[in-house]
Nucleic acid binder design. Sequence first.
DNA 1: GCCGTTTTCGGCCCGACTGTTTTCAGTCG
Length: 599
Amino acid sequence: MAFSNADAAAGFDEIADLLEVRGGHAFRARTYRNAARVLGGLGREVGDMLATGEPLEALPGIGADLAGKIAEIAATGTCELLAQLRREIDPGVRELLRLPAVGPRRAQLLYRELGVKSLEQLRMAAEDGRVRKLRGFSIALERRLLQAVKASLKRDRRHPLATVLPVAQALADELGRVPGVRRVLAAGSVRRMRETVGDLDLLVEAPPGTGVMEHFALSPQVTEVLARGSTRSSVLLAGGLQVDLRVVRPASFGSASLYFTGSKAHNIALRRLALDAGLKLNEYGLDRGKRRIAGATEESVYAALGLAYIEPELREDRGEIEAARSGRLPSLVRLADLRGDLHVRTRGSDGTQTLREMALAARRHGLAYVAIADRSKRPGMASGLDAERLARQIDEIDALGETLDGVTLLKGVEVDILEDGSLDMPDAILRRLDLVVGSVHQGFALSRAKQTARLQRAMDHPYFSILGHATGRLIGKRDPIDLDIEAVIHHAKARGSFIELDAQPLRLDIDDRACRIAKQEGVLVSIASDAHGPHDFDFLRLGIGQARRGWLEPADILNTRPIEEVRALLARTMGRFAPSSKEKTPWTASSSSAIRTPA
DNA sequence: GCCGTTTTCGGCCCGACTGTTTTCAGTCG
């Protein structure tokens, strides 16, 4: 049975929820919550640690007891404590905790007093007027819960980063025009470039009494004001996005930026560090006793805590604080470091522009080279290249001249990795290219072992440069394929292949965690726009965000390198062990059989 | 349940907002 960190993390999160609802175990619950977070953010599999006998107690927040429970979950899929809690409290009660204004206390009351253990039962109880009679409840709260139940049934909790960024920009611009406002910062997970965003957090620097709260609440996009105070307000936008606004004075802008940027885990770690040093950190500043020693800038707070400045994308309590203390923080890659893009499309498949137009669009985005990698055609697909059309495109690029008005074109293709790991394009044509991107576009449901082997076999192909969007996920729409990503990246290292970070807004594939594994393994990452049109090069910004979250530096990226170096690196992936005419590898046979000749 | 330059017990991040148990618990970020 496949066991992953996520399984143990999910178990611990459920234990924490149920302990909170049961009551009287606040700190114990927090321990499980913390352990779940540690497991979720770990750059390696605890299953491997168990297999090699490495002590799990070495992990932060994991002691002997939790180590035992992880082993128990790995072996049996659950643990005795969880089973016992599930017998005591219906697991459905957890649903209630997801509602705004419902925490452990209220969930417990609803469950114990009214027997409510699902959203549907809460709806009925609220409509019957039974909820308002509970201690600490009211008619107003009952009404609010009823609304929340109805809304939660049709609303996604998290929004893709790409859809929130423009909203954040528009709101920030609007608030920036309010008289008295000096600065607006989109903080929170948007600033940390998390792939999805729960709430949008805006921080405004303004003296008291500027009327910015009134302006905010009356903004045309706002459909509901959830809370409104003098320094803090929350509203709901038409699209269902919650926006929290905080107003602070200049002297506190740095500490408030830290607080509002998060992550929560990072903040807790910083505050703990402050406590250890006899200091107190909150959103107003860093204090020693009654004396303020830092707060106007984030740098001042970090410095006073003995830390180098930590970039927002790193603030997840995944080792960045230790790195900042010992001067080992990475110098993160920036958008301007990218010199090329190794995966763009044209009208040759499902793109909208010609070769020349895409090349020039790339140049306008400051890129010096661009690889054309149209999709190969598989049965039932309307557009896509077969061998014949790919051959024509190669001739076309040659005729156009590889260097076109200061931008170099590379010849590539994005082939399908078929279920047996073979590629759907004959070697005879692949060998004429500068690079081959191989990706999974069907067969998403294979087992973990089969998917892993499939991708590893694809990388064994003599013409295979870059593994495209490895997990195939579409954020919020399609789950990633079940995959041992560590094993795949390890194999890429052994084969000399590269891994793509496809920067399409819903892909962002590989994700930040896998980026970090690639860095540890020493596998270069290709940050690719997968552009279908001239404006899609803007997606690179999203890819850079994920790469930074994965601790990547310019040297960890394939396409930060000059064209000569990239050519040389790619050349090594092309025709690595091309078979002689006598010894046919299975791949020759397999890819031949996979060729779909046009009717 | 974890953890340790105030250590093996007694802490565990900190403050705003809401509603009402009118002095603070519950929730949230």
